[in-house]
Design a protein around this nucleic acid. Sequence first.
RNA 1: GUCCCCAUCGUCUAGAGGCCUAGGACACCUCCCUUUCACGGAGGCGACCGGGGUUCGAAUCCCCGUGGGGACGCCA
Length: 469
Amino acid sequence: MSVVKTRFAPSPTGYLHIGGARTALFSWAYAKRHGGQFILRIEDTDVARSTPEAVQAILDGMAWLQLDHDEGPFYQMQRMDVYKRMIQRMLDEGHAYYCYCSKEELDALREQQMQQGIKPRYDGRWRPEPGKVLPPPPDNVPPVVRFKNPTEGVVVWQDLVKGRIEIANAELDDLIIARADGTPTYNFCVVVDDWEMGITQVIRGDDHVNNTPRQINMLKALGATVPQYAHLSMILGDDGQKLSKRHGAVSVMQYHEDGYLREAVLNYLARLGWSHGDDEVFSMAQFCQWFDLDHITPSAAQFNTEKLNWLNAHYIKTLPLERLADEVKPRLLALGITDTQAPDLHAVLTLYRERANNLNQLAKEIAFFYQTPVINEADAAKHIQPETAAIIEAFVQQVQDSAWTADILHDALNQVVAAQQIKFPKLAMPLRVAVIGIAQSPSIDQVMALLGKTVCLQRLRVLFPNLTA
RNA sequence: GUCCCCAUCGUCUAGAGGCCUAGGACACCUCCCUUUCACGGAGGCGACCGGGGUUCGAAUCCCCGUGGGGACGCCA
């Protein structure tokens, strides 16, 4: 039994989006599960569309998700000599041949076939056959190389996700494996690489199902071992539409920017199209022990931001405080906050992490600890009444000479409420508005204790300038 | 058009012929907790695409519809 080896093979024509990330995650997890190797291969043979920025974006995305590869990254453009040697071999062994059709000729053929209602495909006009006389090669058309696909029989494989798939060779045509300029095309490079790199399980998107029989035929022509295939269904956007620029096909790094933890994204993606009974929340370590191809859903899955948010909230609540602080600090910095010493960020996070489901939101919510809050007008209008100043006055009288802890403040609050014969919110809400700018917060006594006496009193005086205390 | 794939609550899914009066999670609704908003707790709403078979018995197997998706490039 050969050792398991999987690969993630993106083409660098854009960022790493959520669908690609899941494919990578599953390939990675499969290798981990079986003690195998996971390799990263950049399929950059489309020179016109590949960019170094996209390569970097993919590397960044993989790094953020911590989907580390054991080998690579390999770049197909650096393996040209390998492909060219293989193409020559195919030619020499009669598995491939030169085709002198021009693009225009091919386009015309395709159009004609479409009109006739038949599947558009190459008609084999340059395909050599015993007893067949080929036209003389035109001297102004540089030839492409085509693979001589079998014309009869069927290609069958046991897909690890979708089960047995069978496609008739009659449905396939002779695909181009080398362009007129001599460069190899995608399907050929994949075949050569998967073979040479010893890939045992090809885990990829199911848009490749139709390429699989061609690849199997080429593998067989080369005398290579055919790997196992697992075709993952696609991920649909939140709106049920195909993922695209307008439908949330954003970079995984966008999730990072938008305040999501990698733990949440990974857990969410793992659970999208794969299941382990009723388990919903699990670590990547656990996932790597559980992951298998038998429990992958063959149908497409719709992305659900609400559930991602829920997982994000879970991880914000349970992450080690140190980790959480590291995630929040840069986001506070983006709000102009550099110093998180006083009050202590860990203490602030302990108080606030319970209620957050997003890192950016969390940073925004605790910003008032480190900078002057903006008073929310609606909250102020609602909670600051004509009698409020007197109530605040009484409160300040009560606490100005005492120690400043949550317990003491808690008692003081209750005493003032009792003495003034008012409902608790009559005091608590104006305090919130004055001290933190809005009417929603954890217990106001705890918030004020963290903020400190000086700052609290100072902020109270801003909103209630006539305090005598 | 041709070929291929798919089909359980709004969404992600459990389910491999009897354990299913179909389970869990997100969302939603109600109640509880409460110092507001959250968090948390307890309930609730809510699905096997349709039709034929096979079988004592089908969400599970088969066929046909229907619907959705994918592929048909000198793109990957």
